[in-house]
Simulated scan of single mutants.
Amino acid sequence: MINIGVLALQGAVREHVKALQAPDVHVTIVKKAEQLDHIDGLVFPGGESTTMRRLINLYGFFEPLKAFAKNGKPVFGTCAGAILMANEIVGQTEPHLSVMDMTVERNAFGRQRESFEARLNMNRIGEDIEAVFIRAPIINKVGPSVDVLATYDGDIVAAQQGPFLACSFHPELTDDYRMHQYFVKMVREPALHA
């Protein structure tokens, strides 16, 4: 049995919990930093990255989250979660957790009314994957150790660097749970991202 946490400060927490459920997976809703000591992998849901960072600071999560990632435990960030993971954010002087060698641009696909759905072919994961883009960022640039998993209209929308997985969209808002299943596999089989 593996234990995967969903950071429950903001965003579609329930939807991620549902998407992660499997017979050999225990899902923990993470509301306190101490809970990080008891989980094997962590999901950063979407939301609003600046608000999420404020809540991370307010509830004492910043250093524990950095330590969790530094210890090589898998982390999956969706939408705003991907922004938290980037080491560079366009138009912002300081990154948040800075765990992935990538540059992101917030709201790159436009505001709420420009939200859309698309089907993506994703390296390692599958074809025709349902993706919901809501005020989504794009990944402008990745470092040499980052693998691009998917693009949309030429823009990078999903990437992996070792134990870290990030996407611009909201896979939890669909019934297509293949990205979550891939993350569960990353947690279960560390050799996949060594």
Rank of each mutant, 00 (worst) to 15 (best):
T151L: 09
V132K: 01
G143R: 11
D155F: 13
E117V: 10
G91W: 05
R14D: 15
T28E: 14
E48V: 01
A19L: 10
A69P: 00
D147N: 13
A150L: 04
M52H: 01
T93R: 04
A86E: 02
V148I: 15
I4V: 15
I2R: 14
A33K: 10
A69I: 09
I129R: 02
F61K: 07
P163H: 13
Y152Q: 08
H193R: 12
N71F: 04
G60Y: 01
N71I: 01
G126S: 06
D153I: 09
H193D: 06
V90C: 08
V75Y: 00
I89G: 08
Q161M: 11
A67Q: 14
E189R: 13
A166C: 12
M85V: 07
F183M: 08
P190C: 12
A33R: 04
H180R: 07
G81I: 05
P163Y: 10
V184T: 14
K185M: 12
T93E: 14
F62K: 12
D24E: 15
D40N: 11
G77K: 00
D175F: 06
V75G: 00
C79F: 03
M52L: 15
V157K: 05
A67P: 03
F62D: 14
L9N: 02
I139T: 05
E127G: 05
P171L: 08
S168G: 08
N87D: 15
G91F: 03
Q161R: 10
T174P: 06
A150T: 04
R119M: 08
K73M: 03
K32Q: 14
L42V: 05
T93S: 13
F183K: 10
M52C: 05
L65M: 08
F169D: 05
I2P: 08
E117Y: 04
N57M: 11
P23K: 13
A159R: 10
E105P: 02
A86R: 07
N121C: 04
L36K: 02
A150F: 01
K66W: 03
M102Q: 07
R178P: 12
F164V: 05
R111E: 03
A67N: 14
L20E: 04
L42G: 10
I138C: 12
I125C: 03
L7G: 00
L65C: 07
S168Y: 03
A108Y: 07
K141F: 09
N71H: 09
P137A: 11
H180S: 08
F109Q: 01
N121S: 13
L97T: 02
P45T: 06
D37C: 05
M1T: 15
D37R: 13
K141L: 13
Q112T: 03
G81H: 02
V104Y: 08
L192C: 09
H193G: 12
R178E: 12
V6R: 01
I129V: 15
R54A: 10
M100V: 14
D24H: 14
H180C: 05
D147L: 12
C167G: 06
D24W: 11
C79P: 00
A136R: 02
P64M: 10
V75F: 00
A158T: 05
F169E: 06
P163I: 12
D24R: 13
V25I: 14
N87R: 11
G154R: 09
N57A: 12
M186W: 04
V17F: 02
L42E: 11
G110K: 09
C79R: 00
